[in-house]
Every structure is written in structure tokens, then in C-alpha cells.
Simulated assay, not measured.
Amino acid sequence: MTRHPKKNDPVALLRQLKDLLSNFERELQSEDLRKKVLALVPANTALRSLGSSLIDRRFAVSARDRILFYLQKYPRTIISGNELMVIAAIGEWARRVRELRVQFGWAIVSGVTAKEIIREEELPFSDVDLSAMRPSEYILLDDQQDRDAAFRWNTANEIRRRKSSVRDKILEYLIKNVGKKITGEELRYVANNRTEWARRVRELRTELGWQVLTKMTGMPELPIGAYFLATTRQAPEHDRVIPDQVRRQVLQRDAHKCLRCGWSHERWNPSDPRHLEAHHVDPHGRGGENTPENLITLCNICHDAVHRK
């Protein structure tokens, strides 16, 4: 009686797979298509078992655990979907990746989302080129789990079902999570996977004055691909016309600190939910230009005080 190898014994599984493929050579001579297909079923099962056996069961038991283990072993590395399929050893591996990303709070970004973020935010990477990612590739940006993600996922799931515009859904989700770091993947999910989601986030910031911050637009301590709504207060209309590129330049020049009181986002807390704004030295209403030379960084408290004077 043939002894079946253990599912966690890669050497024995490889031996079994070789035997099955060797026997399949004879089946190739058959004219019966179904007979050939059925002969490959055990080989396919053995191949999947071999893939799952590459990670010791002491570290990862389920397909989802194996995917996470693999991504954590190679953080900030572009991983193909085929790699994850081999490790997961199940047909629904992509769903497990989505669960890790949306429900369990792991910062896994797909090639589709990476390109959308880069196109709207011009986010640079010094050690990896996200623009080269294919749609079926993934990268773990941060090895820290966001444990509040499961609670936010329920909110996201509720909002995405509503019959409203993509921008309205994103804004509602941001307001419900004001003062919390959320990911681009969450916003894409809320937007029902519409590719326009990143553009709508930019519109909320630059056209409607919502203080949606990213690593490159006001909050450098945020991880790449994360978003943060600092307050439910919209910026004054005269400050909404400042291009993101100019705003970034001003914030970087002023070391991301208020030039009046020295406040920075490193001191942000729920009891003092300030944010940084760009203030026109020569007022915009009197012809002041949106140039770095005519703009300085102020926190919203100091900004309001200056305008009251």
C-alpha cells in the first residue's frame, strides 16, 4: 500500500510529484482527454501541497498566514501574485491578500493602487520603483499592523454600498476616521475600486479645502500610501488655490513647522488637532501670488490669529 507523504514534508512531496509526472507520460499517449485531465489532478494536488510545505507549520498554518509570513520576510520588495499563489496553495489566494490588507490592517499595496497613488501624489521611493509594478504584483510597505483596521473595515463596507459619488463616499469615510491614519487601499475599497479615487482625494484637499495629509503634503512622518484627515474644518477659499507642488515646497522649506509658534505634526494629539497651512504674506485677495516667496507655513491656530488682525 502506497504511503502518502505528510503535507509538511517537502522532500517526500517532491518525490511523490516526480512519480506522478513520470506516470503521466504514459497517459499522454491516450486519446481520451478526460483521462489525461484526471491523471493530472493528483499531480496538481501534490504541487500545491509542496508549495504550502515550504513554510514550516510552526510559523504559518493557513493560506493567509503563509502569505503574510512570505511578505514579512521580504518587506518593501515587489512580490508577484504567482509567488503568493504558490505559497498560499489555494485558488482564492487573492481574496486572502485583500483580507490581510483591508480587514487585518497590513499595509499591502497592489500594483494597481501604487500607480494610482504615484500618478496623483508623485510619491518618491529611494529603494524601490513602484512605477514598475504590474497590476498583479504586491508590496508590503510597513511591517506594523494597524489593529484598528477591522473596525474601520465595517464602516468602509457600509459606506461603499451607498448610492453617492466617489468623492462623497471618500469624504464621509475620512470624516468618520478623522485623526486616524488610513491607507489608499481602504479609500480604493470605499470607492468600489474605481480608479479615480486618488484624484478625488486630491480634489478634496486642493479644491474643497479639506486637510487630507500625506507624507508629501504636510505630514512627513506618515508612511507612504497613508492618508490623514487632521480636522473637519475646511481651509479658507483663498488658500485652496495653492497647488500641491508649491505647498510641498513651502512645507519642506519651513521644516514642516509653524513659523509663529513652532508647532509641528509630531505634537499632534486628539485634544490639540492642529494642522499646518500655507499663509499668503501678501494676501491673495489683493493679488498676492501662489509662489513659495509669498507663502509661509503656519498652524491653523496662528493662521486664524493672523487673519483676525
Rank of each mutant, 00 (worst) to 15 (best):
M1L: 12
H4R: 15
H4A: 07
K7R: 12
V11D: 13
V11T: 12
A12L: 07
L14R: 13
R15N: 12
R26G: 15
E27S: 11
E27C: 03
Q29M: 04
D32F: 05
R34Y: 12
K36E: 08
A39D: 02
A39Y: 02
T45D: 11
L47P: 02
S53W: 04
R64E: 15
I67K: 04
Y70F: 15
K73D: 13
R76A: 14
T77D: 09
I79A: 09
I79S: 06
S80W: 10
G81H: 03
N82W: 11
N82K: 14
N82T: 13
E83G: 06
E83S: 15
M85I: 07
V86C: 09
V86N: 07
I87Y: 00
A88D: 01
V97S: 01
V102F: 11
Q103P: 01
W106I: 05
A107K: 08
I108E: 01
V109A: 03
V109R: 05
S110A: 12
V112P: 00
V112K: 12
E116V: 01
I117P: 00
P124K: 08
D129I: 04
D129A: 12
L130A: 09
R134S: 14
L140M: 03
L141F: 03
Q145L: 08
Q145V: 08
D146M: 06
R147F: 11
R147H: 13
F151H: 14
R152C: 10
W153C: 10
N154R: 15
T155E: 13
N157D: 15
E158I: 10
R162Y: 09
S165D: 09
L174E: 00
K176S: 08
K180S: 12
K180H: 12
K181F: 02
K181W: 08
T183N: 04
G184C: 10
E185Q: 13
L187I: 06
R188T: 00
Y189H: 15
R194G: 03
T195C: 01
A198G: 09
R200Y: 06
V201N: 02
V201K: 01
R202N: 09
L204G: 01
R205G: 05
L208K: 12
L208A: 10
G209R: 08
Q211C: 13
Q211M: 14
V212S: 05
V212E: 02
T217E: 10
G218M: 02
P220Q: 02
E221F: 13
L222E: 01
P223I: 11
Y227A: 09
F228G: 02
L229G: 00
T231S: 15
R233G: 02
Q234C: 07
V241F: 13
I242F: 04
Q245N: 10
V246I: 14
Q249T: 07
L251Q: 07
H256S: 07
K257V: 09
R260G: 01
C261E: 06
G262L: 06
G262Y: 04
S264H: 11
H265C: 08
R267Y: 14
W268F: 12
N269K: 15
N269M: 10
D272Y: 10
D272V: 13
E277G: 06
R286D: 10
E289R: 14
P292S: 08
P292G: 04
N294V: 06
L295V: 04
I296D: 02
I301A: 05
A305Y: 04
A305I: 07
V306M: 06
H307Q: 09
K309D: 11
